[in-house]
Amino acid sequence: MDARFLGIADLTETPSVAVVVDVMRAYTVAAWAFARGAEKIVLAESLDGALALKARHPEWVALKDGPPAAGFDMVNSPGMLRSVDLAGRTVVQKTTAGTVGALAVKDAELVLCAGFVVAEATARLLRARESDRVTFVVTGEDGKADEDLACAQYIAGRASGAGTDAAPFLRRAAESRAAAELAQGVRRGVHSDDVALCLELDRFPFAMVAASEDSLMVLRPYPVSPPAEEDHVRSP
């Protein structure tokens, strides 16, 4: 597999297959939202856009980075989200980097959003699709976030069929700037378990596929078959 690792600003053309990686914390939060029963996640282009969607759909759950704010129901924290019942709900998510990255490749044939919690399922889907060329969008720190790059490189290795050891990649993520800022309380809207939850490898058995629906970029969980059944996985 030909894997490219680019920051959002480095995307000069629309890739065929894109994997948008935000470990700390957008796509860890998204995975937890699905695990807590959410039907879909709408990726908002801006805070105002998220609030406008919430105003039109009061029953939707809106969340954002940083501290709590008027109009938003929650913040972008897996530690806080893991105890919330989201059964059948639609979530509107706006984050600093993760949602921006997904919207930057919205015209790709296949857009996957990922973190370590769905790494193996994401790799399996790429293998099942026989994706020869994949662009990994490293969303954090203008493409330099080591937790996102480490996760992207790990998924690329697994998607290529290599027996990739997760330990060094998880170590890099644990020692990243983002992990330190979350642990030290530099960032707001943080739960003490957030870093640990972001580093849980393969917590969930689904990949996450984003696609345009009624002019919105919508993320949904996509169950992936066990390895022995990979040949039978249908393309999303």
Rank of each mutant, 00 (worst) to 15 (best):
T96S: 14
V190P: 00
A128L: 05
A152D: 13
A33T: 05
R177P: 05
L43D: 07
P58C: 12
T96H: 08
E130P: 02
R25P: 01
G161W: 03
V29K: 00
R203D: 06
T14G: 00
H57T: 08
V138L: 07
D231T: 10
N76L: 06
G185D: 13
L182R: 15
S212C: 08
F34M: 10
L197W: 03
A97C: 08
S131P: 05
L112N: 10
A69E: 13
R133W: 04
K106C: 09
T122L: 08
A207D: 00
T139K: 03
L103Q: 11
S212V: 07
A183T: 10
D85Q: 09
E130Q: 10
H57P: 07
A3D: 13
L170C: 04
T90H: 02
A183E: 12
A18W: 05
A87P: 12
D10I: 06
L199G: 11
D142Q: 15
A178P: 06
L81N: 03
R234E: 12
E120W: 07
T99L: 03
F72L: 10
C151L: 09
E109A: 15
R82G: 07
R187T: 05
D231H: 15
A38M: 07
M74D: 14
A123W: 04
M208C: 11
R82D: 12
E230T: 01
E109N: 10
R127C: 05
A123F: 09
R89F: 05
L63V: 01
E213F: 06
S46L: 06
L112I: 09
G79C: 04
D22N: 04
D165I: 12
L86M: 11
V42M: 00
A69V: 02
T28I: 11
M208Y: 00
A150I: 02
L103M: 06
F34R: 12
A50D: 00
H57Q: 15
R172E: 13
C198P: 10
P67G: 10
V61Y: 14
A31R: 06
A55H: 06
A108R: 01
L125N: 01
E59H: 12
D10K: 11
E45N: 08
L126C: 11
D142H: 14
L201E: 09
A196M: 06
L219K: 05
D73E: 14
A123M: 04
K40W: 04
A87C: 13
A211H: 05
D22Y: 07
A70N: 09
R129S: 01
P226L: 10
L125D: 00
M1F: 09
